[in-house]
Design a protein around this nucleic acid. Structure first.
Lengths: 149, 149
DNA sequence: TACAATTAAATTGTATGCAATTTATTTTTA
DNA sequence: TAAAAATAAATTGCATACAATTTAATTGTA
């Protein structure tokens, strides 16, 4: 028992979280390569499949990303033809992103991606549920911290 | 119930993992800024505090990072005076990284970092334990997948 | 209504991550 | 043992992340 124990990698909760998140996105890569999408582009498409249309700000709220990250991702997805950008009529500061027909079609092909990843993650249904709950509990608390400032 | 449900962000386990890991490193930042260290530099120092001396390859095995990421991190830590690099005597391909006196001293000051982060994470002792176990279970399985290739 | 404060995106700069390649060295093996 | 294969770091190139700044537009308010 040393006062340095809290600085040991094996006693950290943050480290396996960080390592695990990287391992997951790394294992997504070969699946997403088939569609020529990166992980960030993929989750941006997920928002678009659900919302059909959303501002950059809204997409950022869903994904916890700012315009510095999203702008190039959105431009890339636009150049691939999956989404379109146009200035908002209501508020000329805003940019509305909407899904194209090609973007909608992509969804059919990509349903196999989460299926393939599910097989990768080696948790029981119950464990996955626990993990899900714990992660969202942490995220929710950080959201609250971020709101108070 | 649609066949697209698996492509919904809220049904993904990977997404909260990704978002949570980012939220954690983001909240580390103000704590680490005081020491002029990034998160990656910080966990590299953790390995050095435990090991005193290790090759780039070994550090990478601990941290799940390759030389492409580690080389600049190690160079930065060297320029700050916390570690030193020298060619290995045994194997001239390898580089041995070892901690300096300044690096050892840093440890005393940084024990307050994990303490401060602990207060941030809002889980009970028990929940933290569960999360830890689940994350390492996933990591271990990915390690096994990666070993078979 | 002017004008200050705020807001939405884009831009800029720094630091990852990681695949792929290169270079130097060591190990295998024919 | 000489050539081929493998290995350790470094390098290169691309795509994030994110803080900080900039630009354009909108809101709040004196």
């Amino acid at each position: 028992m040393s006062k340095y124990d809290c600085l040991k990698l094996e006693n950290q909760l943050c480290f396996p979280l960080y390592a695990c998140a990287k391992a997951v996105t790394r294992h997504y890569k070969p699946l997403l390569d088939e569609f020529d999408l990166t992980y960030t582009q993929y989750i941006t498409m997920m928002v678009m499949w659900e919302r059909k249309s959303a501002s950059v700000k809204e997409i950022g709220e869903y994904l916890y990303l700012d315009s510095g990250t999203l702008t190039p991702v959105i431009n890339k997805l636009e150049s691939k033809g999956y989404i379109e950008k146009h200035r908002s009529d209501d508020d000329a500061r805003g940019v509305v992103v909407s899904i194209t027909e090609a973007g909608k079609k992509l969804r059919d092909k990509m349903v196999k991606v989460p299926e393939a990843m599910g097989g990768c993650v080696a948790l029981t249904e119950e464990e996955a549920g626990e993990l899900y709950t714990l992660l969202y509990k942490i995220l929710k608390h950080f959201d609250e911290i971020d709101a108070d400032e």
